[in-house]
């Protein structure tokens, strides 16, 4: 098994890098989804508050 460690290192690095990138993409997607949901809720609340104040003013 001459040069086994070179082979082992190459495949370990490839799999670690690909796995780390998949995890990064997954976490970034999840965080962005949560931020979008929060902003949508905030926008709905602000629009509802604006509508209520307009109706109160009339």
């Amino acid at each position: 098994m001459k040069n086994f460690w070179y082979l082992f290192s190459a495949y370990t690095i490839i799999w670690t890098a690909l796995w780390a990138y998949v995890v990064y993409l997954s976490q970034a997607n999840r965080a962005l989804k949560q931020d979008i949901e929060a902003l949508r809720a905030q926008l709905d609340n602000v629009i509802a508050a604006n509508d209520a104040s307009k109706e109160g003013g009339v």
Partner: peptide
């Protein structure tokens, strides 16, 4: 496709921030 979903969501976030 996953990376493009991130780019699309970042753009959507910018638009929502502007609207808020």
């Amino acid at each position: 496709r996953q990376r493009m979903a991130i780019a699309r969501r970042r753009h959507e976030l910018e638009v929502l921030r502007y609207k808020v």
